[in-house]
């Protein structure tokens, strides 16, 4: 299988990698680049644990090929905090116990951030539908929805 050389920008850093044509962006992030914040819960786009943004669009990195990302801008959970300063969503998720096991948390944070960039003042229903592709099996979603709303309110005020 021919190996491809790809150059992208990940969390603002120009990043080069080699990958086979059938490798997903998730495989590239985890296996080639050591960025294990995006998780594989299904590999088929049904759980959202591998969520990243690709050129500003929320996607499942398991449904993107590494070879497709030439020249793309990718944002992952590893780039969400600014150094030691957590993003508001990250901090509020901790303060409001919006995670239990934490495996879905990176994907949910990336998805929630994407929502609030598009819609800073969503209704609960809008949050729930936006996050419908992010499965969480621990929390029953209640505290996640509330934390997104708390963070949204704080970010609107900030």
């Amino acid at each position: 299988m021919k190996t491809n050389h790809i150059q992208t920008t990940i969390n603002g850093d120009v990043t080069e990698f080699l990958c086979n044509a059938d490798e997903s962006l998730l495989d590239v992030l985890r296996d080639r680049l050591g960025m294990t914040g995006a998780k594989e819960g299904c590999g088929t786009g049904d759980c959202g644990a591998c969520s990243v943004t690709l050129n500003g669009r929320l996607v499942c990195s398991c449904l993107v090929l590494g070879v497709e990302t030439e020249g793309a801008e990718i944002q992952t959970i590893e780039g969400m905090a600014n150094g030691d300063n957590l993003h508001t969503l990250q901090r509020v998720f901790l303060e409001e116990a919006a995670l239990q096991c934490g495996i879905c948390t990176p994907g949910i944070l990336i998805a929630a951030k994407s929502l609030l960039e598009k819609n800073p003042n969503p209704t609960d229903t809008e949050v729930r539908y936006w996050l419908a592709g992010n499965l969480c099996r621990c929390t029953g979603y209640d505290k996640i929805i509330k934390a997104v709303q708390t963070a949204a309110a704080e970010m609107r005020g900030a």
Partner: peptide
């Protein structure tokens, strides 16, 4: 009381190492 959990920051930043995360 409702104190912050000690493993929380690793889990909101993607650093926490789960089963598939080590090589």
């Amino acid at each position: 009381t409702r104190v912050p959990r000690p493993d929380g920051i690793d889990k909101v930043t993607g650093k926490a190492a789960y089963g598939a995360d080590i090589t």
